[in-house]
Design a protein around this nucleic acid. Structure first.
Length: 990
RNA sequence: GCUGAAGUGGUGGAACUGGUAGACACGCAGGACUUAAAAUCCUGUUCGCCCUAAAGCGAGUGCGGGUUCGAUUCCCGCCUUCAGUACCA
């Protein structure tokens, strides 16, 4: 039989499922290898061809590692909490669990169709209560923990309580909110239980805090920073505004430095690490205090608000260039800064208030779009520069952000471009501070040269000056060296239904954890998936949903990233009811050796996961500091759209009888499409025939009408056409006509008898008719072909447009491969004869190549080499078991079904190929005696000459120069120099 | 603006430490088989020039320079595309 992919694939998919071929257990006799895919959100649309790209690559690698003797954990599951199912629930009233279940079923079918070697016994779903029980449990551990900077790790809250009892806040070095109290042990002891809880909340790693959040009114929920793009929600594109709310947060900032340092030890793509570094945004600098000048002379004449000023009032600024402090010519506060109202003088009050009002009106978008101009207002107040006592005016401006640093900056116009623009605009001094500074047209942030106009650092260089200024500030108590991070604590609440309930209840306004024995806290039933009338989240609708029938539960749910921040541990022990995973299993599987997924998760999932992992390690639950040792981003698969070009008839009728004719509907019902290359000129093709046909049709419909003009308009407007009825850019005209009623009578102006479509690369989406579904392709070519074709398309990490054009080539390859084992009549025939040298060479060439390629994740090149090997063996008419059996093993990771079938036909026990061993490469078979040297003259290859590899360079040179063909290129001249690289090349310089 | 990645035939791409640019496919053209089509097989296919053909000549990896006997690969400057980020003090 010819290659019957359908029956073969169905047979083996069934076999694997029946026999649980890929089920894996801890096995200390074998080295472990953990291959993980980023698990999908099961959306209603199902998989398109872009999704499986990473899964295919990881499956190839997992199968390869099995053949290499590793115990491979290769699981799959679903990130099944999320917005789309909830939106659907709001629209239809259908419970999101039902939608999710149906979508998962569809995903599972599609995944099964591709022949992945997942261990489905370890499937996880973040929305299932026996999973989210442990998400809630981890939340509780975070609530019961604080970050001790002295030990540089998270500790149980009891060690903090002990510290407060014995020492108060003395010697306490903790990550906390800003408003913690300084306490003596006696103060702590005197606290009521509630006061203690309120204070502890400021230290807990998950805590409740009033925060400015990204509120999306259309979605009725809060979004994380990475869920907001340009002021709009990433999902749905609804406007997002800033709003203050009580929110659960995660103190990820405690881990900022470890998250940054950890990047040095993991094998991730550099761009991705760079994104995380930028996101963490470490800046090394100093805090500097500027005291406020007491408004002495003005006091009497001002209103009472000015009297609130105290000399003890300070403005703190953060700077990364403390060395430039002598160049400060003004301070700038964010308009939202709390001191603004206090320090503004009566004379400036109106101007300041007008400016604040104006900034509030500016939307986030406007502020971002306009980075070239600056604006601000003077408060009328002055501060004192701590290094030289200079009087510095205080301004407000919206280029200073309230949320970063202290919300105040010291402006050094000579070194900072925004300060420079601001100084120019408002006529403030621009002071040169380094002799190397070039600042005629713009600020010069150089660190070169020696300081000038800079008091006690004049003449010093950058390094010396920085150290000296910091030392001076510390001595004066006016500043200190400090490291700042851009990253903020992560908001951890969503005003949504379809997520994990937070295991917290409230007593007298304070949050408490529910009892661990009550986990999981089940998601309650609600009548509608919308906020309540009073604006509470959907959980507020749950009837009689109270802790111990008494206390209010937390009504917000966890964000999408909660469940995905630890799921790789659950795969190790998916069914465990007593722990999120058994300790021994965690000790065996440790971490993910290879993680494949998209780079869009750079600052979301991949950062939060590293954070939770570090936390779990601090508390001793897991063993590794970093969860994902090696990570690969598969490139995005873009869509490739096809276009047809529509033109129309121009008909002009004789005036007398135009009323009887419905011209516009005739034109609409007879659309005309022009092949791509004829749009501008379609004469001499079949225009005349088309025209004739249409004219006949028109005349038979309206026999008495006199036509003045009847012609096809030049040009054509592009219209998206479904790529599934286009092959190699040639339109299937019959399918096109059948696709829509209005196209039923379509006419085509063809080139060479074909309709050629235009093409363009765009996002893959339904509206562009360019979605290609893997099911259609497996139906037509089989999963093995699709797997290999997706790899053949190009390097895994590169983004590329999907184009089905080349799939035939891969399909042909598999048929050719199949034929190696069969005679002309498709009888299975292999010979037990000893292989020839040429056959062994072809085999070992591919063994070497495939191994090297897989190890460096270059799957596209190994597909090419399989083709070469099969072409060679076909030419050699090789059907020897000794060669073909190894070839079957080599190909198995790529095309598991056909290789299982052939493995069995070769007489091996069914299903054993997955755990066979990868063929051993023997370099002896590739040893050559001769090498065909390319002979180049002045770097241009002119001819080839074969010499023994053992031949010495000097002898080669002699022979080459004596050669007739070479002599011709020398044109009688003497060679200046002859380069002979043994086994590579000969180059003659004339 | 900043950060990162990438520019190679009609198309996807290959060339791993500087050593025969265009492997392997797709497409296209021609041919064989066939009543015909499909399938399959064979030949050609970077571009330009010359030519009946054989052969030959020249150019060529985004652009302009450089290093080298030799550069798709290394260095300098520029252009374009894609992704991330955005007043971060």
């Amino acid at each position: 039989m010819d290659y019957q992919f359908k029956s073969i694939e169905a047979k083996w998919q069934n076999f694997w499922a029946q026999n649980q071929t890929y089920k894996v257990e801890t096995d200390t006799t074998k080295p472990k290898y953990y291959v993980l895919d980023m698990f999908p959100y099961p959306s209603g649309a199902g998989l398109h061809v872009g999704h499986p790209l990473g899964y295919i690559a990881s499956d190839i690698f997992a199968r390869y590692k099995r053949l290499k003797g590793f115990n491979v954990l290769h699981p799959m599951g679903y990130d099944s909490f999320g917005l789309p199912a909830e939106q659907y629930a709001i629209q239809t009233g259908q419970h999101p669990a039902i939608t999710t279940e149906a979508n998962i079923k569809r995903y599972r079918e599609q995944l099964d169709n591709l022949g992945f070697s997942f261990d489905w016994s370890k499937e996880v779903r973040t929305s299932s209560p026996d999973y989210y029980k442990w998400t809630q449990w981890i939340f509780m551990q975070l609530f019961n923990a604080w970050y001790n900077k002295s030990t540089d790790k998270a500790e149980h809250i009891s060690t903090l309580i002990h510290h407060l009892e014995t020492q108060g806040t003395a010697n306490l070095n903790a990550v906390s909110d800003d408003d913690t109290q300084k306490l003596l042990p006696t103060d702590w002891a005197a606290f009521s239980e509630e006061e203690k809880q309120a204070e502890l909340l400021k230290y807990r790693l998950t805590f409740l805090k009033e925060s400015t959040v990204n509120w999306c009114p259309a979605l009725g929920t809060v979004l994380a920073n990475d869920e907001v793009k340009d002021g709009f929600s990433e999902r749905g594109g609804h406007p997002v505004e800033q709003k203050k709310m009580m929110q659960w947060s995660m103190r990820i900032t405690a881990y900022a430095e470890r998250l940054l340092q950890g990047l040095n030890d993991i094998d991730w793509p550099e761009p991705l690490k760079e994104m995380q570094r930028n996101w963490i945004g470490k800046s090394v600098g100093a805090m500097v205090k500027f005291s406020l000048e007491r408004p002495t002379s003005e006091v009497g004449s001002q209103d009472s608000s000015d009297l609130r000023l105290r000399t003890s009032d300070l403005i703190e600024v953060f700077t990364t260039r403390v060395d430039t402090i002598f160049g400060v010519s003004f301070l700038v506060l964010a308009p939202e800064h709390e001191l603004v109202a206090q320090i503004t003088t009566a004379a400036q009050k109106a101007e300041i208030e007008a400016y604040i009002a104006q900034t509030k009106k500016k939307s986030e978008l406007d502020r971002m779009a306009d980075t070239k101009t600056v604006s601000g207002a003077f408060t009328g107040a002055y501060a004192i520069n701590p290094v030289d006592g200079a009087r510095v005016p205080i301004w407000i401006a919206d280029y200073v952000l309230a949320g970063y640093g202290t919300g105040a900056v010291m402006a050094v116009p000579s070194g900072d471009q925004r300060d420079y623009l601001f100084a120019q605009q408002y006529n403030l001094p621009i002071i040169q501070i380094l002799d190397a500074q070039q600042m005629e047209n713009e600020a010069d942030p150089t660190k070169e040269g020696q300081y000038v106009n800079s008091g006690f650092i004049n003449g010093l260089n950058y390094k010396e000056a920085t150290a000296k200024v910091i030392a001076f500030l510390e001595q004066e108590g006016m500043g200190y060296a400090k490291i700042n991070y851009r990253m903020r604590d992560a908001i951890f609440g969503r005003q949504r239904y379809w997520g994990e309930p937070v295991p917290v209840y409230f007593k007298n306004g304070l949050p408490y954890l529910i009892d661990e024995s009550e986990l999981p806290l089940m998601l309650p039933e609600v009548d509608k998936y919308l906020p309540t009338e009073s604006g509470e989240p959907p959980l507020g609708r749950a009837k009689d949903w109270k802790y111990k029938d008494e206390y209010e539960y937390e009504l917000s749910t966890m964000p999408g990233w909660a469940g995905s921040s630890w799921y790789w541990y659950r795969y190790m022990d998916a069914k465990n009811e007593n722990a999120f995973a058994d300790k021994d299993k965690i000790a065996y599987w440790k971490d993910v050796d290879l993680y494949i997924g998209g780079s869009e998760h750079a600052t979301g999932h991949l950062l939060y996961s590293r954070f939770w992992n570090k936390f779990l390690k601090d508390l001793g639950y897991v063993t590794e500091e970093e969860p994902f040792k090696k990570l690969i981003n598969q490139g995005m698969i873009q869509g490739r759209s096809n276009f047809v070009y529509r033109t129309r008839l121009d008909i002009i009728l004789d005036l007398s009888n135009r009323d009887e004719v419905d011209l516009s509907s005739f034109v609409a019902n007879n659309p005309i499409f022009v092949s791509k290359n004829l749009i501008n000129n379609y004469q001499n093709y079949n225009e005349e025939n088309v025209l004739k046909r249409l004219r006949q049709k028109f005349e038979s419909a309206y026999p008495n009408v006199i036509i003045a003009k009847f012609e096809i308009r030049k040009g054509g407007a592009p219209i998206h056409v479904d790529v599934n009825i286009v092959e190699n850019d040639i339109l299937n005209i019959n399918e096109f006509k059948a696709s829509r009623d209005e196209y039923a009578n379509a006419e085509f102006i063809l080139e060479s008898g074909k309709y050629i479509c235009g093409a363009e690369v765009e996002k893959m989406s339904k509206s562009k008719f360019n979605v290609v579904n893997p099911d259609d392709l497996t139906e037509r070519y089989g999963a093995d072909t699709l797997r290999m074709y997706e790899m053949f398309l190009g390097p895994l990490e590169q983004s590329k447009p999907w184009n089905t054009n080349g799939i035939e080539g891969v399909f042909k390859f598999l048929r050719k491969f199949w034929k190696l084992f069969h005679d002309e009549a498709f009888n299975f025939v292999v010979s037990d004869e000893a292989p020839t040298k040429a056959e062994l060479k072809a085999l070992h060439k591919i063994i070497k190549k495939v191994e090297e390629d897989i190890e460096r994740f270059s799957f596209n090149t190994s597909v090419s080499c399989f083709m070469i090997a099969v072409n060679e063996l076909t030419d050699l008419k090789c059907n020897k078991r000794a060669i073909l059996q190894d070839l079957v093993l080599l190909l198995h990771p790529y095309a598991p079904h056909v290789t299982e079938e052939l493995w069995a036909l070769l007489g091996n026990a069914a299903g054993t190929i997955s755990y066979a061993s990868f063929p051993k490469f023997n370099p002896e078979y590739l040893v050559e005696n001769d090498f065909n040297y390319p002979i180049s003259v002045n770097g241009k290859t002119r001819t080839n000459l074969s010499f023994p590899l053992s031949m010495e360079a000097a002898d080669i040179e002699k022979e080459v120069l004596a050669n007739e063909a070479v002599q011709k290129y020398l044109e009688g001249k003497l060679p200046k120099k002859v380069i002979v690289v043994k086994g590579r090349i000969v180059n003659i310089v004339v």
